Amino acid sequence: MLGAQRRGLVIFLALPLVLTPAAVLAQQAKGTADPGPVATPTQAAPPLHKMGVSAKDRRRRVDSSQWPWSSLGRINRVIGGHCTGALIAANWVLTAAHCLYNFNDRRWAIPSDVHFVAGYDRGKFAGHGIAKRFVLSPGFIPRSNGDLGDITRDWALIELDRKLDLKPIPIAAQDLTLGNGQAHVAVAGYSGDFREVLTADQDCDVIAQLTPGPADAKLWLHDCDETFGASGAPLLHAAGGKTEIVGIQNAIITTGEGREFSTAVPLSAFHAALSQISR
């Protein structure tokens, strides 16, 4: 857990949850590739406050075999730990950049050490691919002291070594308009306390927009219940019969008064980079 005091805020990157000991998933069927390391089940922790989760805890388990949940997955790292990612094209995954950085040795992960397991649910999955290369935000600086300006650029694209036979989740054409300063969204991820199943908060809102760096760099505050392990999870917006990605969950901030808010990078930060991907 990383924190830094900035203008009365304490910033916590929702880092990849490190799991010790880790186990490797058994092959699910003949010819199925090994999807990388996953944690062994552990006893439930006592009911303590979870950073980023309200007292009501609106997270509910969702069916990973049904779209759009089937195109969300765990990003597993060989060195340990996981985040969440979304399939946005047959062989491209969207996530948070800090999920691909090893803060212990201060190096970016080797792509072949990163696995994406789509529709993961307690050892079962809908698709699996190994990272072939990363497209990283040119302005993101991975550092342990946390900075609001940095996390406005906390996004990454992962090209997989194969195309997955799954329906991608489309990305909206433009940023959400925050009517009265708010917009209704949903977030689904593999939180550390429910790491074997996908949980979602489908009743939450973007509540404010910050511009902590350059004028074109924005950061959203939202009240969705998610915690460590859900970093890289997409913010989903449903309207007119469509479900689209409008941002990326990436951190939690605590105000000087002790109030917690989750943060998200809006799609305007990475929209230009989408021209690099093959659909």
Rank of each mutant, 00 (worst) to 15 (best):
M1S: 15
R7N: 15
V10R: 14
I11G: 01
A14E: 12
P16N: 09
V18Y: 08
L19T: 09
A23Y: 03
A26Q: 11
A29T: 12
G36W: 01
P37Q: 05
A39Q: 11
T40R: 13
T42H: 09
A44P: 02
A45R: 12
P46N: 08
P47I: 03
P47V: 06
H49L: 12
K50G: 02
G52T: 05
A55W: 04
K56C: 08
K56P: 00
R60C: 09
S65G: 14
S71M: 02
L72N: 02
R77E: 01
R77K: 12
L87A: 04
I88E: 00
A90V: 05
N91E: 13
L94Y: 01
L100F: 07
F103M: 09
R107S: 15
W108E: 07
W108A: 06
A109I: 08
V117I: 12
V117C: 07
A118M: 05
R122Y: 07
H128M: 05
G129Q: 04
I130R: 15
S137P: 07
S137T: 07
G139R: 14
R143C: 09
N145H: 12
N145G: 10
G149F: 00
W155G: 01
L157N: 01
L157K: 01
E159S: 06
E159V: 07
D161S: 11
K163E: 15
L166W: 04
P170M: 04
D175Y: 05
L178A: 03
N180T: 10
Q182S: 14
A183G: 08
V187K: 02
A188K: 03
G189N: 02
Y190E: 02
G192D: 05
E196S: 13
V197T: 13
L198K: 03
Q202G: 15
D203H: 15
C204M: 11
V206W: 02
V206P: 00
P214C: 04
D216I: 06
K218R: 13
L219A: 04
L221K: 06
H222K: 09
C224V: 08
D225Y: 06
T227M: 11
T227W: 05
T227I: 09
F228Q: 13
A230Q: 06
S231K: 03
A239W: 02
Q249I: 05
Q249W: 07
Q249S: 13
I252T: 15
E257W: 10
G258K: 07
F261W: 14
F261N: 04
F270R: 00
L274C: 10
Q276K: 14
Q276M: 12
I277P: 00
R279Y: 09
